[in-house]
Simulated assay, not measured.
Amino acid sequence: MTSRVPEDVVWMRSSTSSGDDAVEIARLPDGGAALRRANDPDCEPHVYTAAEWDAFVKGVDAGEFDLPE
């Protein structure tokens, strides 16, 4: 695993995430986050800084990623 993700992070999966498309998230000590495919935990995770993750969460909260009706 990448040195940017400590070995002892706790990976979590949403209760609504299942099957081959499931993803897991780990909060990093610096406030950032790492995402990985749940069915391939040895694959290099995507790592986001605290600022990047904060911007993403704010975008989700604001509905920026909602599908058009």
Rank of each mutant, 00 (worst) to 15 (best):
1 M>N: 02
2 T>R: 13
2 T>Y: 03
3 S>R: 00
3 S>C: 03
3 S>I: 04
4 R>E: 08
5 V>R: 05
5 V>I: 06
6 P>K: 04
6 P>F: 01
6 P>Q: 03
7 E>V: 08
7 E>G: 11
7 E>I: 06
9 V>H: 06
10 V>P: 04
10 V>E: 11
11 W>H: 10
11 W>R: 06
13 R>K: 08
13 R>D: 04
14 S>R: 11
15 S>F: 00
16 T>S: 14
16 T>F: 15
17 S>N: 06
17 S>W: 10
18 S>M: 03
18 S>N: 11
18 S>E: 08
18 S>Q: 11
19 G>A: 03
19 G>R: 09
19 G>S: 02
19 G>N: 08
20 D>K: 02
20 D>I: 02
21 D>E: 07
21 D>F: 05
21 D>Y: 04
22 A>E: 03
22 A>Y: 10
23 V>S: 01
23 V>H: 09
25 I>S: 07
26 A>N: 09
26 A>C: 00
26 A>Q: 10
26 A>P: 02
26 A>H: 00
27 R>A: 08
27 R>G: 09
27 R>T: 01
28 L>K: 07
28 L>Q: 04
28 L>M: 06
29 P>C: 09
30 D>A: 12
30 D>R: 15
30 D>T: 09
31 G>L: 05
32 G>C: 10
32 G>V: 01
33 A>H: 04
33 A>K: 10
33 A>Q: 00
33 A>D: 05
34 A>Q: 01
34 A>W: 07
34 A>I: 06
34 A>N: 05
35 L>T: 00
35 L>N: 03
36 R>I: 02
37 R>L: 08
38 A>G: 07
38 A>S: 15
40 D>Q: 12
40 D>S: 12
41 P>T: 09
42 D>I: 13
42 D>H: 13
43 C>I: 12
44 E>T: 15
44 E>V: 14
44 E>P: 12
44 E>N: 11
45 P>K: 05
45 P>I: 02
46 H>T: 14
46 H>A: 15
47 V>S: 01
48 Y>G: 07
48 Y>A: 07
49 T>M: 10
50 A>Q: 12
50 A>D: 07
50 A>W: 11
51 A>I: 10
51 A>W: 11
52 E>N: 03
52 E>H: 06
52 E>G: 09
54 D>G: 14
54 D>L: 13
55 A>S: 08
55 A>W: 05
55 A>D: 00
55 A>C: 02
56 F>L: 12
58 K>Q: 15
58 K>R: 15
58 K>N: 14
58 K>F: 12
59 G>T: 08
59 G>S: 09
59 G>E: 13
60 V>A: 11
60 V>T: 01
61 D>A: 13
61 D>G: 13
62 A>Q: 13
62 A>I: 11
63 G>T: 08
64 E>R: 14
65 F>T: 03
65 F>G: 10
65 F>E: 10
66 D>V: 14
66 D>I: 13
66 D>R: 14
67 L>D: 11
67 L>M: 11
67 L>C: 10
68 P>E: 15
69 E>R: 14
